[in-house]
Nucleic acid binder design. Structure first.
Lengths: 252, 252
DNA sequence: CACTTCATTCGATAATATTGAACGTCATTC
DNA sequence: GAATGACGTTCAATATTATCGAATGAAGTG
């Protein structure tokens, strides 16, 4: 596997891009050099390369840099590499439209959920989960779906990575979690009651392939009050129905 | 500007990622080495680094590589860096929903249009324009909007880059283009009659900032027959109305 | 069981990334 | 309006580091 040492300049270049991931404001060469603890000239060389290639772009006014549009092409290639995101997207859109809330799609990767798609309705409050974000499984609705429907051995390995209180509501003991997962397995959907972020709740459902393995999970997420105002049975039914429609659409 | 030489390993790493942009199938080390005409071991070093960082991922089965989810986070950061894409998205969604066709959002960059957002309706045929794609201005609906509403000097510079027949319908002479742009300027919207791709037509409208400068352009795109079945005046009105709603939402 | 094919590792080498210092430009301050 | 400072960019020297060809090992094929 990955035992060989990383190529330094490539690693640094990617670190620079990653600095823009959050609070993606323009950054100066100096700032970046300080963040990464490198000399200005080293950083300039890297930035200049990324700029020439279109992955960064320079604001002529103040000479600062921000992410370039070239990245969009790559980002898009990932999702369309993903038959899942492609086929699921319209379904998420419909859910967002019907309930006027944010809809998220996630897959499991090395013991984390990774959000790979998101739709919002014009009226919905923007949920701060960004596409590409990783979260632990035990504290999110989509994550608990994976824990409940992944092979028990796999799920236990992941749980073995550790539990912790993210909010006061997080289910952080193995016993309580086991019970919760049992319920989820019986119901076919999961509820997150402010377990990852206070004020935010969600209902999530697993997406299976034709063989019945869980391949993804989708959720409707929003401010607790508004989510609770939707009859749970109705919302859960919508999610599970959408999940199975996605399975059909994917043809795998 | 970018006069300094690019850092070789970074440039090569990005080239590798770009190989996956189209027909994003899994690729072997060997294949990539052949494409780029580099030694296998060099390519392996680069790939291994990108893999370790999450920008590529390896299929355990066949040892081949494909794009990793880490890129999604970056791609998403670009669009949310973009106030425009953020504010415009719900409006595009509504258009797609209302007309059951693909809706595209583009900005101008160095004489090209770059598509920065796209929405599709569940029923719509997938248009093969990907987010991040660059196209010349003169042969697309969104591009012609830019040529018609950019400052004449800027537009002429871009036209000076050259015209060519992309399809038999492409407007490829300066005189004909000038007339077309005049019409677009008068109407406030542009029509692409299979000028970029046979069988595909679109209607596009410019998006302005509060000062009246064009900052983007949006289009409804689809198979010619279906686009023509919508009354042009109605569709054009929808697009222009959406464009001005986006302007209001953006508050710039 | 030989024979390919390919991913991965290794070691030597030369090419290349890195660095600190220097330069030039712009803005601010006195 | 000269002087200062801040910062992006260039430069040349150096040592680190990326690169390459060859070697290894695993997996598959006849």
């Amino acid at each position: 596997m990955g035992k060989t040492k990383n190529i330094q300049s490539v690693e640094r270049a990617m670190q620079i891009l990653e600095l823009f991931e959050q609070g993606n404001q323009e950054k100066s060469v100096k700032e970046i050099a300080e963040y990464l603890d490198l000399s200005k000239s080293t950083v300039f060389g890297l930035i200049n390369t990324l700029n020439n290639l279109g992955y960064l772009q320079q604001n002529e006014e103040n000479a600062k840099y921000s992410l370039g549009t070239r990245i969009l092409a790559l980002g898009n290639a990932v999702s369309s590499a993903n038959l899942l995101a492609q086929k699921a997207h319209p379904h998420l859109q419909k859910l967002s439209f019907d309930y006027q809330e944010t809809c998220l799609l996630a897959v499991e990767e090395n013991g984390f959920v990774v959000y790979i798609d998101k739709t919002e309705s014009p009226g919905s409050i923007s949920i701060n989960t960004r596409i590409g974000t990783k979260k632990e499984l035990f504290c999110t609705g989509v994550g608990k779906c994976f824990l409940a429907f992944l092979p028990p051995q796999t799920a236990n390995n992941i749980i073995g990575l550790g539990l912790r209180k993210v909010t006061p509501n997080t289910i952080a003991t193995k016993a309580a979690l086991a019970e919760e997962l049992h319920t989820i397995h019986e119901n076919g959907y999961a509820v997150d009651r402010e377990e990852y972020e206070l004020g935010i709740s969600c209902v999530a459902a697993p997406i299976f392939n034709k063989q019945g393995d869980i391949i993804a999970s989708l959720s409707l997420t929003g401010p607790t009050g508004r989510i609770q105002s939707i009859p749970l049975s109705q919302l859960a039914a919508s999610l599970m129905q959408t999940a199975s429609a996605i399975t059909k659409d994917m043809d795998i």
